[in-house]
Amino acid sequence: MQDISTRGHQGSSRLGLLLSLSLVGVFFTSAVILVGVWTRLVDAGLGCPDWPGCYGRLVVPDAERAMAHSPDAPLEVFKAWVEMIHRYVASALGLLVIALLVAGAGLRKRQGYPWGVSVALLVVILLQGAFGAFTVTLKLWPQVVTMHLLGGLAVLLLFLWLHLRLRRYAAGDTGERPRRRLTPLWGLALLLLLLQLALGGWVSSNYAGIACQGFPTCNGQWWPEMDWSEGFHLTQTVGPNYLHGQLHADARVAIHQGHRIGALLLGLVLLALAVRYWHESRLRPWLGGVVGIYVLQLGLGIANVLLWLPLWLALLHTAGAVALVLCLALAVWHWREAVEDETTIRKDKEWAHV
């Protein structure tokens, strides 16, 4: 009896540790994403010309050693340290993922334990490391930079999902109860959010944030000259490197305008989602949060254009994107966890005929 009690206490302690680590992972990943964007905004993505070290060292070397290692890439101390800080915190995040996997290994065969999410988290964090290396070796190629951002958000969502699944497991729910499936409106909202995040990364990686001056018009026109084919040409060459971009003005305007159009479509669908499910008290706080964060994001985006993309405001815009992703993910979670009542079923049928 004592052995059983001891094992139960150890299992409870381990579960508490896993819950804490997964929650820390959510906040830490958010911080790592912001550090990555800061690195991007201060043009420090190539602060170290090699990977994983910096001029062959694990810390930023002096100018003489840097010159001996890479004579064609002069050392800029500030940018090199910014890049290395990004690598240090990203490596720490990888260690956190490994710690979660090790701590949960003993529970992996128990029904309801989210072992698959833990393994997926490890796979994605390894892919993120590869994209981090490609960001340097492919000299800030926009495709890689954008995928690196989306990968960071994927890590964030997996940490959140793991934490929520662990909370469900700790409450004694083995996951046998069927969950509600996502409706087409939920799917459309998620698809448009993913598209808008990718467009945001594409704007940043192609240095198109201020390609349009003024709002709501762009460079004094409602529909300015744009080169869509070049702006969204996914196989363009890198050249010596992609620092400050290589696209001409009309291509960058097309990218910027694409992001604005995406924001409008996303806003309309998020508003429709909130109106559609506002009657569900369990969802109301999260849907209200989604709409509120979207409005804040819209304001930050406009301010970034009007104020010529100041660093602090660009970082706030990224933080808003992270908050929007988290809030919509929590709305999805609560939608799936809720038990359908007669009112919900009736309203679903009514909307199906609209």
Rank of each mutant, 00 (worst) to 15 (best):
F27L: 14
F28A: 15
S30T: 15
A31P: 12
L34F: 12
L34I: 14
V35L: 05
W38P: 02
W38H: 12
W38G: 11
T39V: 02
R40G: 09
L41E: 15
V42C: 15
D43W: 01
D43S: 08
A44V: 08
G45N: 04
G45D: 14
L46P: 10
P49T: 14
P49Q: 07
P49V: 07
P49H: 13
W51G: 08
W51I: 00
P52K: 13
P52H: 08
G53S: 04
C54V: 09
Y55R: 14
G56M: 01
L58S: 06
L58Q: 10
V59T: 07
P61E: 08
P61W: 11
P61R: 13
D62L: 06
D62G: 10
D62I: 01
A63Y: 13
A63S: 13
A63K: 15
R65A: 14
R65P: 04
R65N: 10
M67D: 02
M67Q: 09
M67V: 03
A68C: 05
S70N: 06
P71L: 12
P71R: 13
A73M: 09
A73R: 02
L75A: 13
E76A: 06
V77D: 12
F78I: 00
F78E: 03
F78P: 02
F78M: 05
F78K: 12
K79E: 02
A80Q: 08
